[in-house]
Computed example of a mutant assay.
Amino acid sequence: MSDTVSFGYEEVAPAEKTRRVGGVFTSVASRYDLMNDAMSGGMHRLWKDRFVRRVKPRAGEQILDMAGGTGDIAFRLARAGASVTVADINPAMLEVGMTRAQQRGIDGLVWSEANAETLSYPDRFFDAYTIAFGIRNVTDIPAALREANRVLRRGGRFFCLEFSTTQWPGFAEAYDAYSHRLVPRLGQMLAGDAESYRYLIESIRRFPDMPKFEGMIRDAGFVNTRVEPIMGGLVAIHSGWKI
């Protein structure tokens, strides 16, 4: 990893990014899902449904949902009878998820505070690894991808849902203007925090494009990698297999 990494449009030391990202998600945790609805017009729910259909969770499988603190993906995975470990580096996000699970009467999930770059789980333990809208906030993305590969069993599958760069003519410019100008204002109105949402938008812009990120997944040891663009690449489902 280089001496500096991106925190939005800034270049900062790796430890500084980890600290500042932690501050962002501690700040927005209680209103994270409300803001997702506001920013995407509720579309994030459809994207997550589609994502979990691609994962194809099965009863009895062990699945690690990384950066899944609020439980959105884990709740969907658990419906199929899979045993889901919800891992997140941020305890405030995990607290939100555990509260939501209790309110919905969802039992059986394992909640774990964990850093994606240095997982404590044993080698070849999980059947699937999922991460939704979390990989771009990781300080050392290649390290996190290598850890994902390590904890998967042979034949295990990796699935990542993340924002990317839409290739639809005209829409890209409109979305860029909307996100930079209006999302921080929504963050201020709904969560009392414009700066955290400014970072979240900037982090999307700094994230590798679809071909480059697919290459990073291959470099981590995955094969049969695939990218499924949604809305022209505004969002993408990345996948790969461990052999």
Rank of each mutant, 00 (worst) to 15 (best):
V96L: 09
R124K: 14
T166I: 07
Y178T: 00
R181P: 08
A191G: 15
G108C: 08
A128T: 01
H180K: 14
S164P: 09
A116R: 03
Q188M: 13
L145E: 01
D127C: 06
R146M: 08
F125T: 05
R150D: 08
S120I: 05
G170C: 08
G108F: 04
Y178E: 06
F159D: 02
R157Q: 13
G155H: 03
L94C: 10
R157W: 02
R146N: 10
F133C: 06
M93Q: 12
Q103L: 15
A144L: 07
S112Y: 13
T130N: 07
D193Q: 09
N137F: 10
A177Y: 09
M98L: 13
E162P: 12
F171T: 09
N115L: 13
R136D: 12
A144G: 11
E113N: 11
E117K: 05
N90Y: 03
M98G: 11
Q188K: 14
N90V: 05
I131R: 03
N90H: 06
A92G: 08
A132C: 12
V183A: 06
G134N: 07
F126G: 09
G81I: 00
L145R: 07
R136G: 11
Q188G: 15
D127W: 03
T139W: 09
D176S: 13
P184N: 07
V110P: 02
C160G: 04
I106R: 05
D123N: 14
D107Q: 05
T118E: 12
T166D: 05
P142R: 10
T85V: 15
A132K: 02
V86L: 12
L182P: 00
P169G: 07
M189Y: 13
G155F: 02
L190E: 05
Q167P: 02
S179F: 11
A177I: 11
R157K: 11
S179L: 11
A144N: 00
I141V: 15
A148D: 06
R154A: 15
T130M: 05
